[in-house]
């Protein structure tokens, strides 16, 4: 199967080598969990290491902020734009939806001009601005994702989770539409906040089922080992497993 490396080796291992090509992949997390950083790394890695130009479609954060944030990791997005390998497009969900559905629209033109293979949409949560009706919303998201696939793009879509600690109570119909679903969570362990990553779903491929720790370093995302001796990680307040259980099952 043709894999698309994310640029985060630990995550690629969890995904069995990376995303499947021309699929839509959702990354959900609370503010500050690194959804946008992961998206930028995915795009930067594609351009610099895989010769795959990329597009970032942002619905709220200004492109200026992306240039600035990317520079903090040593990724020169302005230069990549000058070279015609990247476009950071700011628009709204309603405009992008109409645009990508039309023939010869702005997004299609950018994709054709650059030969883009990757796209980040930051964030899909803003589609809720178009309609309050969950059935219509699912239909709009489905249509938008299909348009990205029609353009032969491998997409990383972010989604905001309003819950800082613990599991999201939002209805997430988009989770059914996408091909893979990655969850980023804050976890409180011994009076410190750590970050946890889980691949909830991956259509057409096996994937790691464990919950991994990760950090955002000066080089970007760094996926580390799984949480040992803890249970209830996704609740945000994990408990230590009973020593006898750890002895019997975890350490073996």
């Amino acid at each position: 199967m043709d894999r698309v490396n994310t640029g985060v080796s630990g995550l690629d291992k969890m995904l069995g080598g990376g995303f499947l090509r021309e699929t839509a992949n959702l990354v959900e997390g609370a503010p500050g969990t690194g959804k946008t950083t992961l998206g930028m790394q995915f795009i930067h890695h594609g351009i610099v290491h895989q010769n795959e130009p990329g597009l970032i479609i942002t619905f709220e954060e200004f492109p200026k902020q992306y240039y600035h944030d990317a520079a903090a990791f040593g990724w020169d997005f302005k230069e990549l734009e000058k070279k015609g390998l990247l476009k950071v497009v700011m628009t709204s969900p309603e405009v992008s939806r109409l645009d990508i559905e039309s023939v010869g629209g702005m997004i299609e033109r950018h994709i054709d001009e650059m030969g883009a293979r990757r796209v980040v949409v930051d964030s899909m949560s803003h589609f809720a601005r178009i309609t309050q009706d969950p059935v219509e919303l699912r239909s709009l998201e489905f249509q938008f994702i299909n348009a990205l696939k029609r353009e032969k793009l491998t997409a990383l879509l972010t989604r905001e989770s309003p819950v800082l600690l613990g599991e999201s109570v939002q209805e997430a119909s988009i989770g059914f539409i996408v091909d893979s679903y990655i969850v980023l969570r804050y976890v409180e362990i011994e009076s410190a906040i750590r970050k946890a990553l889980l691949v909830l779903k991956m259509r057409g491929s096996d994937h790691a089922k464990d919950i991994r720790q990760y950090d955002i370093t000066t080089n970007g995302f760094d996926v580390q080992s799984k949480f040992e001796g803890q249970e209830g990680i996704l609740s945000g307040n994990p408990r230590k497993m009973a020593a006898s259980f750890v002895e019997a099952f975890v350490k073996k």
Binding site: F62, P63, K64, E81, K87, V88, V89, M90, T91, S92, E94, V95, D99, M106, H110
Partner: peptide, 16 residues
């Protein structure tokens, strides 16, 4: 100039 690939409605541009 700072956000050169912005394309949007007048309502959204006014918000920005």
């Amino acid at each position: 100039h700072e956000n050169p690939n912005t394309a949007d409605t007048v309502e959204n541009i006014a918000k920005y």
